[in-house]
Design a protein around this nucleic acid. Structure first.
Lengths: 144, 144
DNA sequence: CCCTCTAATTGGAATAGTTCTAATTCTCAG
DNA sequence: CTGAGAATTAGAACTATTCCAATTAGAGGG
């Protein structure tokens, strides 16, 4: 039905084309890096990971690619307080749990009915395009 | 029972004292400015409002005071994406609705049972100290 | 009252993360 | 092969915030 957890790398080109954009090596590698290790890296972290495959890439390009991917709905940008933006290729509706001790971020799956209930708190006249649910605290279990 | 919507200005001194801090004119005026117009101002906006009462205050002090008030749980800091931090003296549990057209922020009251349900989505092992719920979209009705 | 001790404030410099700019390089349609 | 537009690049610029060192202010003791 819906595009599953994440799109096949090869389908990236298609998604980009849908927006009238080209599949460049930079965009492909940035996206593959996000898929490879889903630890919500910052732009800087993506930068160093991509550089090992494409040493000539610039930080500006990493920002550009990330923005492009977000714009194509292949990636979500996540913010915690004033920290650097983090990037997440998980397309299913989910919340984020921010572990204050380790700084790690975990995806929390959201059953559809919870989203409905949350949206239902909005008084009439409010038209929400998206909701963000973010927990802060500490997590014990295995890191995702 | 619980401290209601917001503390009486006079009680500010008490709250500060509880944390071993003094009630300075700067802190009092910063707090009163937040209470006077609850439009989720940024630090810069607070700065200009406070200056009309206390022209010699510095921006650094505004940041210090805001941080102090947040620390004493008199004020909440709110972030939208990478925008500047906004400040909110509403102490009741509530979500935020960020109007993309106008940039305005509206408080959305949260019934306690919704918070419980949201917290219930956390797998065991996750110990959340706080939850943030943020909507983005457009709002029709009267601005708050 | 005055003194002292520490908390608080101040202005300016410094920082982090991100965006902008202008120049270059690439790609593909013709 | 050529030209037009898209994408990339390096570095400058920008914004919000924090840091720092110096000054001021206020509470309590004598």
């Amino acid at each position: 039905m819906s595009p599953a957890t994440s799109i096949l790398p090869d389908a990236l080109a298609q998604r980009l084309a849908d927006s009238g954009l080209r599949a460049t090596p930079q965009r492909e590698i940035v996206y593959s890096v996000l898929l490879a290790k889903r630890d919500h890296p910052t732009a800087d972290e993506v930068f160093v990971r991509v550089k090992s495959e494409l040493p000539t890439i610039s930080l500006a390009t990493v920002y550009n690619c990330l923005e492009t991917l977000v714009h194509c709905d292949l990636v979500r940008a996540v913010n915690f307080e004033r920290g650097p933006t983090r990037y997440c290729p998980n397309l299913r509706p989910h919340a984020h749990f921010h572990d204050e001790q380790t700084g790690a971020t975990h995806d929390i799956e959201l059953p559809p009915e919870i989203l409905e209930k949350v949206n239902a708190v909005l008084p009439s006249g409010y038209d929400a395009k998206s909701v963000e649910i973010t927990f802060r605290g500490k997590a014990k279990p295995s890191t995702s």
